[in-house]
C-alpha cells in the first residue's frame, strides 16, 4: 500500500492521470474500510428482526419484521428463567461498584501524588506508571492464583476489588492536578489557614470534574467489557456478568453446538439481540464521547 503511495507521489506533479489514480486509490481504500467497519454493525442491528431460517435464505442485509424482534426478545429472556436479566444486573453491580471504589481511591491518590510531599512518592508514581502501561490481562491469572490462595473465589469482591485497582485513573488525575490547578488559588487557601483536607474537598474536587468524568468513562467501559477475570473467578452461572453470560449463550446455540443447544430457542437472531443488549450501555457512552475517549488515549502521554 505504501509503495503505491510513494510511487504515485513521485509522479504526482507530472500530470493529471497520476493524480486521478492516486485519488482513486484513496477513495477505494476509504470505501473498503468503511464497509469493513460498518457492515458488521449494520448486520448485527438487522439480525434480530429475522428468523433463523430467514437469516440463511434472505439477503443478509434485509429487514425482517418487528414482530420477529419481539419473538426473539421473548425467547432470549425466557432462557434459563431470565438469566440475561440477572447477568445484566451482575454487570451493573460489578462495573458500578468498582467505579465507585475506583473514584474514591484514585482521585485522592492522584491529588496526593501531585500536590503533597511524602516519602516513597516517586516510587509509587513509577510503579503506577508501569502497571498502567502493562496490559491488564497480564495480572489476571496471578490475581486468580492469589484469590484462590485466600479462598475468595466466587465472591462478589473477587471481581469488584481487582476491577477497582486502576492505575491509569490515578495517572490521569495526577497529570490533571499537576498541570491544571492554578497555583495562586492553593497558596491563597493555605494563607487563609485551610487544612490539606479542606483544600482537597473545597477547591481541588470541584475543579476536577472533567478528569473525574474521564476516569469514570474508562473504568466503566473497561470493566463492563471485561471477560477474562470474571470468567476465571466466578464459577456459577447466576453470578456471571453479561460478557461471560454471552459465552454461555453461545454454547447453547444449536448453530454452534448442535448437541447441547438442541431444543433451545436460542438461535442466531436471539444471540444477535443478546449482543446488542449486552453492549448497549457502552455503545451509548461511545456515541456521545468520542472526544473523551480519544483525549484519554492521548492523555496517558504528554507530548510537547
Amino acid at each position: 500500500m505504501t509503495n503505491t503511495a510513494i510511487a504515485s507521489s513521485a509522479t504526482a506533479r507530472r500530470g493529471a492521470p497520476s493524480r486521478v489514480i492516486s485519488l482513486l486509490i484513496i477513495c477505494v481504500l476509504l470505501a473498503v474500510l468503511l464497509v469493513f467497519f460498518i457492515l458488521p454493525v449494520v448486520w448485527l442491528l438487522l439480525a434480530p428482526s429475522k428468523t433463523a431460517d430467514q437469516m440463511v435464505h434472505d439477503s443478509p442485509l434485509s429487514f425482517g419484521s418487528f414482530g420477529q424482534i419481539a419473538a426473539a426478545w421473548k425467547h432470549l429472556f425466557s432462557f434459563q428463567n431470565d438469566a440475561l436479566l440477572g447477568w445484566l444486573r451482575n454487570s451493573a453491580v460489578y462495573s458500578g461498584g468498582s467505579l465507585i471504589l475506583t473514584l474514591l481511591t484514585s482521585v485522592p491518590a492522584g491529588y496526593g501524588l501531585a500536590l503533597t510531599k511524602f516519602r516513597g512518592r516517586k516510587a509509587l508514581l513509577a510503579i503506577t506508571l508501569v502497571t498502567m502501561i502493562m496490559p491488564s490481562a497480564t495480572l489476571v491469572l496471578p490475581v486468580f492464583l492469589e484469590l484462590n490462595q485466600f479462598h475468595l473465589i466466587g465472591t462478589v469482591w473477587s471481581v469488584i476489588l481487582p476491577f477497582s485497582f486502576y492505575p491509569f485513573g490515578v495517572y490521569l488525575v495526577y497529570i490533571y492536578f499537576a498541570t491544571s490547578l492554578p497555583k495562586e488559588i492553593l497558596q491563597a487557601a493555605r494563607i487563609d489557614g485551610a487544612s490539606q483536607w479542606q483544600i482537597f474537598t473545597r477547591i481541588a474536587l470541584p475543579l476536577a470534574k472533567p478528569v473525574v468524568g474521564l476516569v469514570a468513562f474508562f473504568s466503566f467501559v473497561g470493566n463492563w467489557n471485561n471477560f477474562f477475570l470474571p470468567y476465571l473467578v466466578l464459577p456459577n452461572s447466576d453470578q456471571f456478568p453479561v460478557q461471560v453470560g454471552l459465552n454461555q449463550l453461545l454454547t447453547s446455540t444449536p448453530s454452534f453446538n448442535p448437541v447441547a443447544g438442541a431444543g433451545l430457542n436460542i438461535t442466531i437472531p436471539e444471540l444477535a439481540l443478546a449482543i446488542i443488549v449486552a453492549i448497549l450501555p457502552v455503545l451509548v457512552l461511545f456515541l456521545f464521547s468520542q472526544r473523551t475517549l480519544v483525549s484519554g488515549m492521548l492523555a496517558g502521554a504528554t507530548k510537547e
Binding site: 471504589l101 474514591l104 481511591t105 484514585s106 485522592p108 491518590a109 491529588y111 496526593g112 501524588l113 501531585a114 500536590l115 503533597t116 510531599k117 511524602f118 516519602r119 512518592r121 509509587l124 510503579i127 503506577t128 502497571t131 495480572l139 496471578p142 490475581v143 492464583l145 492469589e146 476489588l161 481487582p162 477497582s164 485497582f165 492505575p167 490515578v170 499537576a178 490547578l181 497555583k183 492553593l186 493555605r190 487544612s195 490539606q196 483536607w197 483544600i199 482537597f200
Partner: peptide
Amino acid sequence: PRRGGGGGAAGYLFVAGYTILLLAFGVFPT
C-alpha cells in the same frame, strides 16, 4: 507539581486507599 507544605501525614492519607489496592492487586500477585 506544587506540593503543599503540609508534610507527610496528609500525603499518606490521600494515597492510602489506592496503595492498598496496588499492593493487593498489582504488587502482591506479581
